[in-house]
Amino acid sequence: MSTPAPTSHSTAASTAAAPSHTPATGTGTVKRGLAEMLKGGVIMDVVTPEQARIAEDAGTVAVMALERVPADIRAQGGVSRMSDPDMIDGIIEAVSIPVMAKARIGHFVEAQVLQELGVDFIDESEVLSPADYVHHIDKHRFTVPFVCGATNLGEALRRITEGAAMIRSKGEAGTGDVSEATRHIRTITAEIRALAAKGEDELYLAAKELQAPYSLVREVAEAGALPVPMFTAGGVATPADAAMMMQLGADGVFVGSGIFKSGEPAKRAAAVVRATTSFDDPAVIAEVSRGLGEAMVGINVADLPAPHRLAERGW
């Protein structure tokens, strides 16, 4: 989505004079580039090297290393933080695909540590306890790319302004109830369509209402899409859930508790991967949905008291 408009020759007229042979790391192109390479894929929560290998064998594009899956965070309560570096090292060692890890909202030192450990992507995540109730991390200061959650377009644009290279609709993590994921991706895509339909002179007010910079609002209105990939997360538990998210316009899917809290994780993981690729082919989705064993039991989001809803963290 962030591809610059192709021109008849190379993009940057400004580079025509002096070739720049010094490699530049951590540029916007390089950070958003990794997000683009993950599109059409499944990113899976894992808590051990063994789970990471199961996820890699199942065909996931990346793994999310964390100490407790959201369902357990929910059950056990308490403050939830960045994982132990030893645990993250173990997962980096176990697989050859990209490894992501979560930092608390606003906790820029946890993010510095994760970058130092060599994780490929940081999730500034509402699933952990927030460390700052006012500011998110200034993600431009990092070489490693970030993904951030959003429940609506304004929130997504504020995260992109702070430097997020990928947006993930939040859903309600650790429930196995896909309804919030549906609501969030439908909200964001509907708001983008509404923005694209606005007149040029209406975009100033739109920027004010979205609490996002006018230049970014205008870019989204013109493109009819976010400038970074948008994945979806929070409650995806079955192959059909994943395919529905893709049909609703997601670029890819995060699955968490739904895999390793189910009867046959390896089989379910592979089935979710296949359904994400063949999201528009009901025959394939039917085939991979057979005999997956017991799905995650789950919690209905409607039964969750408001203070326990993770999606409301972040602003």
Partner: peptide, 15 residues
């Protein structure tokens, strides 16, 4: 050679 340059923090752009 796959991933020949290292992890994502080593990813780069150049001429």
């Amino acid at each position: 050679r796959r991933n020949a340059f290292g992890r994502q923090t080593e990813s780069f752009e150049t001429d």
